[in-house]
Design a protein around this nucleic acid. Structure first.
Length: 555
RNA sequence: GCCCACGUAGCUCAGUGGACAGAGCAACUGCCUCCUAAGCAGUAGGCCGUCGGUUCGACUCCGACCGUGGGCUCCA
């Protein structure tokens, strides 16, 4: 990759300039090399001279000139170097070197753009993890898209990644679920029933209740309330979980592990975790409850692990869960939570410290919420009546590709305005089609080339040298950026930047298409351009694959 | 009140301490005898919330303030 090679050249240039006495000895630190925003500033630029000028008490431009003059010759890589602006050193890559990206794509195929920053570290990304007490809503779709794409891009960056869904199948929420069904069930039978205060009021609860009546009549009405509620829980939460799984599958999100909270309790892990913390002196008893001393690790106040009635809190089981993750050998745990859980981050990190794992092993990504719009008008969602737009409804309406792409366009820190009508529109204002269209267009060109008898075999080096049009060179340069994008998105946990790259690549391709015919009378050029266009197709497939969006051959 | 995030074009948002701040939409103007016009080219649109600080250099880092959203349970 060009970045390392140029960094090495700069380092050598600096060392040589010092050795030749043009510069005083100085520690350059880490050499920064960036893609300049403006094309005329070349392919790569370094601010080294600006950074060093103060230390050596020289004019930055003089420093830059000195380094430039001492740079080793590298005609295979660089075609030009200049000092510009306040003291940047700009590098222009040799065209031959730019074209070489096509050979790399050919060689690496689906592995193109991969890198090794992850160094094989074991990472778990846990996301969605919605309580199995109702259908997924649109916000869950965002976490699903985000978690899945993050896992993909980190995997491409050399991490060993697992995707996990945590099932809260224990405690208050499932109990409320059972109580809600029970109330609707009795109502459906014309009996009096008090609907629980914090019950689930969605239509789907009525549907479940009615289905039970249809299948079982009033047989559950004769049991004691507790027995009926737990019967309903056991019957219905697995079914709900199944339907959540189906929705996620509909969105092409596949988890490696579905982890049950009940299992944690069944295996005694919650108790073990609590006992361990007590033994370590991290927990104390006060007013009948057991408290974790999270204030020792930066939390605002200590938190209850076991209530005075003997019941462990959700926090306790969450601690046990994170302990279990660490014991499974992950180097890094990434949790994706809704922004409404942000108050929970400090205490969970404190708990990691209290357990002796180190808070740096846990990263929490807080996703802002999704607001739905339809033609500019907000789609109202009411918790009170339980009227929500489900993820299934959204997927049915706009399709998995558009939904995923829209969810991924914004950084997790930004609330997302999702316009259903825009996502549905099959027109240029919809960016997902813009990118997919580039892929379809390439497929169509390749079909045309084959049908018109063009030579589809690999080009020679001389053939490749016929690629000289500015817009085709720009396209090749864009291809070469994938690897640093992957590294950036993985390290910053920012898969949304990949959508921007996808659009830039598509744009570069469409500009190429405008200027350059692929199938021409010139056999050398035709071989080279077919090869180039295949490379673009490969890279589009990689990027769309990381985003979890399909790459259609026809549109 | 305290904690966190956000504040960039008319709208929705990108933006990695660097050079003249970007995209899409919306508005306006052109371009199909052609491998897909789901495309391309162009015009217009900015006090990067405000004020200070750090730096050779700040949309970017720090502080204060203003605005928006979220959180501050022996809830999950």
């Amino acid at each position: 990759m060009s970045k390392e090679q140029i960094t090495a050249l700069i380092k050598e240039g600096l060392d040589r300039a010092i050795a030749e006495g043009k510069l005083p000895a100085v520690d350059a630190g880490r050499i920064e090399l960036d893609r300049p925003k403006r094309k005329e500033h070349g392919d790569w630029a370094t601010n080294l001279a600006l950074a060093v000028a103060g230390k050596v008490e020289m004019n930055p431009r003089q420093v830059a000139e000195a380094i430039k003059d001492s740079l080793p010759e590298a005609p295979d890589v660089i075609s030009g170097v200049e000092v510009a602006g306040p003291g940047f050193i700009n590098f222009h890559l040799a065209p031959h070197f730019v074209r070489a990206v096509l050979l790399e794509i050919e060689e690496k195929g689906a592995g193109f753009g991969a890198c090794k920053v992850g160094a094989g570290r074991k990472v778990q990304v846990e996301f969605v993890s919605a309580n199995p007490v109702g259908p997924l809503h649109v916000g869950h779709g965002r976490w699903a898209a985000l978690g899945d794409a993050l896992a993909s891009v980190m995997s491409h960056a050399g991490y060993d990644v697992e995707r996990e869904y945590y099932i809260n199948d224990y405690g208050t929420q499932v109990n409320n679920f059972g109580l809600s069904i029970s109330a609707r069930y009795l109502e459906a039978l014309g009996m009096d029933a008090e609907f629980p205060e914090s019950g689930y009021r969605g239509q789907y609860i009525d549907d479940i209740a009615r289905r039970i009546v249809d299948q079982h009549g009033d047989e559950f009405a004769r049991m004691p309330q507790d027995e009926r509620v737990s019967a309903f829980i056991e019957m219905e939460y697995p079914r709900m979980l199944g339907s959540i799984g189906a929705t996620l599958e509909h969105m092409n999100v596949v988890f490696d592990v579905w982890f049950s909270e009940r299992e944690l309790y069944r295996k005694g892990e919650v108790e073990q975790a609590v006992t361990e913390l007590e033994k370590k002196g991290q927990a104390y008893r006060d007013t009948g409850a057991l408290w974790l001393r999270t204030t020792g690790y930066g939390d605002e106040k200590d938190r209850v692990l076991v209530r005075s009635n003997g019941e462990p809190t959700y926090f306790a089981s969450d601690i046990a869960y994170h302990r279990d993750k660490m014991l499974r050998g992950f180097d890094l745990i990434i949790d994706i939570w809704g922004a409404d859980h942000h108050g929970y981050v400090a205490r969970m990190k404190a708990a990691m410290e209290a357990m002796g794992f180190g808070a740096e092993h846990l990263e929490v990504i807080l996703g802002q919420l999704v607001k739905l719009f339809r033609s500019g008008e907000p789609v109202t969602m009411s918790k009170r009546t339980g009227e929500i737009v489900t993820l299934d409804e959204l997927l049915d309406e706009v399709g998995a590709d558009a939904a995923r792409y829209f969810f991924l366009q914004r950084s997790a820190d930004s609330p997302l305005d999702f316009d259903i009508e825009l996502a549905k529109r099959e027109s240029p204002e919809n960016p997902v089609f813009y990118v997919q269209y580039a892929h379809a267009r390439i497929c169509s060109i390749l079909t045309y080339a084959a049908e018109s008898g063009a030579d589809m075999s690999a080009p020679t080096g001389e053939d490749l040298d016929t690629l000289t049009e500015p817009s085709e060179m720009d396209l090749l340069r864009k291809l070469a950026e994938l690897e640093e994008m992957v590294e950036f998105c993985a390290e910053r946990r920012a898969p949304h930047r990949l959508t921007g790259y996808a659009e830039e690549l598509a744009q570069a391709f469409h500009a190429f298409y405008r200027d350059c015919r692929v199938v021409t009378e010139d056999e050398c050029l035709t071989r080279a351009r077919i090869f180039a266009v295949r490379g673009v197709r490969q890279v589009l497939e990689v990027v769309l694959g990381l985003l979890g969006v399909t790459a259609p051959e026809k549109m």
